[in-house]
Nucleic acid binder design. Structure first.
Length: 484
RNA sequence: GGCCUGUUGGAGAAGUGGCUUAACUCACAUGCCUUUCACGCAUGCAUUUUCACGAGUUCGAAUCUCGUACAGGUCACCA
């Protein structure tokens, strides 16, 4: 097999979107599985929608995910450069001239307004909206005259009659379209810039792209592209159209959908791990052969097979993502986990009086249960909340047994004399209280927890008290005892 | 409306004619563990052969064929 070359070709219109990221991911996995190259090309032909920094952002988050292009605008292979379509305009021009000369394409002087009227008319008559070929029948003299007047024009392809475009999709199998269902579409816009469907063919061919994995929404673009390959006499790459990612309502994930976070940047900000995102996205529309679901990048590359790509849409399941991310978080060295959480804690609380050790102990307490970095913030609230309040149900519990007051007094007295306020020593005091006050189990732990934290459930008691600190613990104990 | 595609549980899915009594995972429920919470572990989870529905092919179908329904995609001087 010739060397596999695939590409991910985003338009620099914003941050890396989850759908695009997944497209990039599968192209990457495919390339690496077959020891091929993964190319990043920038499709910036929609000048109006390009945003400043869009390309950098795409690159940044691709990099974050660990999807590193072998070739890109930043790392060009001279044989194929440049990698931005707006820098390839002269290349397209050459082919456009050829198409025009051969009569495969023609100039169209219809204005957008005229087109719109025609479109409406066809639609109201129940016809498929399609260019009416008005300008195809212009005489060379008429064309020359209009050009002399400086009228703007687009260049349209003359779609062949009675052709059938068929291909074997790597995912969907045999697919075919008839040329009669396709209108003469625009190759070059009035501003002289090629359309996506045109530029992509020239680029994929001149860059020796062998395989194209893209979203299902491109399925109906494929015959348009194939007709161009045929006109030029070029070999058609292999196509694979992947399922859409849909939301809970089974609708294509739209960038405006507020229910699902759409961009890699948002996941990074919330403290999701790139390895987990990589793993999770690989499971969206693809399934491994065995029963394993947690894969690092290398084993995913190893396990990947395009034959196991699914045909039916996959739903973006936030709960599963959370689970996958939690799996990775648990494996993290504490140091890394601290790094993940710190920005969120710093933003939410005043950490200036806390030592590094204290913060690390605090964070370590929650590593098992947190599913993404920012989630730690509400969990640790009780260690930052200076207002101490006992919730109603807890207060009720405190008054449920006369021995509770005694238990708390015993415990408080033991703590007063405790110099080294660490969890082990605190635990020893709890044990001592158990004997002295004759309280055990729930009747021992629960009163202490409530009296010191105000709540009935929380992490390990000794650890909680250590984190709270001796002064706070004693003060709260005293105050609570006084209410009993 | 035309064209294209899909349809296995709440979700992702495995399964492509008999070894599947429809794997596995998430979610959910219950139990165990734990002072509690969380973690972990265990069990249950497509109720009337069941794989959208109907018909057909076959000794035999979730798996093949046709039709119906539903869902989605696409028909731009966006990509």
């Amino acid at each position: 097999m010739e060397k596999v070359r695939v590409r991910y070709a985003p338009s620099p219109t914003g941050h890396l979107h989850i759908g695009n990221a997944r497209t990039a991911l599968f192209n990457y996995l495919f390339a690496k599985h077959y020891h091929g190259d993964f190319i990043l090309r920038i499709e910036d032909t929609d000048v109006a929608r390009n945003v400043e920094g869009g390309e950098e952002s795409q690159l940044k988050y691709l990099n974050w995910l660990g999807i590193i292009p072998d070739e890109s605008p930043q790392h060009p292979n001279p044989k194929y450069a440049p990698y931005r379509q707006m820098e390839r305009l002269d290349i397209y021009q050459k082919y456009t001239n050829w198409l025009l000369e051969k009569g495969y394409a023609y100039k169209c002087f219809c204005t957008p307004e005229e087109l719109e009227v025609e479109h409406q008319r066809q639609e109201s008559e129940g016809m498929a909206p399609r260019y009416n070929r008005k300008c195809l029948y212009l005489t060379p003299e008429e064309v020359a005259e209009k050009e002399k007047q400086g009228l703007p024009y687009t260049i349209r392809i003359k779609v062949p009659d009675n052709e059938v475009y068929e291909f074997d999709d790597m995912i969907r199998g045999h697919v075919s379209f008839e040329s009669k269902d396709i209108g003469d579409w625009v190759l070059v816009k009035a501003n002289g810039i090629p359309t996506y469907n045109y530029a992509v063919v020239i680029d994929d061919h001149t860059m020796d792209i062998t395989h194209v994995f893209r979203g299902e929404e491109h399925l109906s673009n494929t015959p348009k592209q194939i007709m161009l390959y045929k006109m030029f006499g070029w070999e058609v790459p292999k196509f694979g159209h992947m399922t859409l990612i849909v939301n809970e309502n089974h609708k294509k994930l739209s960038k405006r959908d507020a229910n699902v976070l759409q961009f890699m940047s948002q996941y990074e900000e919330l403290g999701y791990l790139p390895q987990a995102m990589f793993n999770f996205m690989a499971l969206l529309g693809w399934s491994p052969e065995g029963e394993q679901e947690i894969f690092d990048k290398d084993s995913l590359i190893e396990a990947f097979s395009e034959t196991r790509l699914s045909k039916s849409p996959s739903m973006f399941d936030k709960a599963k993502l959370a689970w996958v991310n939690n799996r990775y978080i648990k494996e993290l060295p504490l140091e890394e986990f601290v790094k993940l959480c710190m920005p969120h804690l710093e933003k939410a609380y005043d950490l200036s009086s806390k030592s590094k050790e204290w913060i690390e102990k605090l964070i370590a307490t929650y590593q098992e249960q947190v599913s993404y970095g920012a989630e730690i913030v509400p969990l640790v609230e009780l260690f930052f909340n200076n207002k101490f309040e006992i919730e109603a149900e807890a207060d009720e519990f405190l008054h449920s047994d006369p021995n509770i007051k005694n238990t708390l007094e015993v415990f408080a007295n033991l703590l007063v004399n405790l110099d080294d306020f660490t969890k082990d020593n605190i635990f020893a005091c709890i044990k001592e209280t158990q004997k002295t006050a004759n309280a055990k189990g729930k009747m021992l732990y629960m009163p202490i927890r409530i009296a010191t934290t105000g709540i009935m459930h929380g992490p390990d008691l000794a650890v909680s008290l250590e984190l709270l600190g001796k002064d706070v613990v004693l003060e709260r104990l005293k105050n609570t005892i006084n209410t009993l």
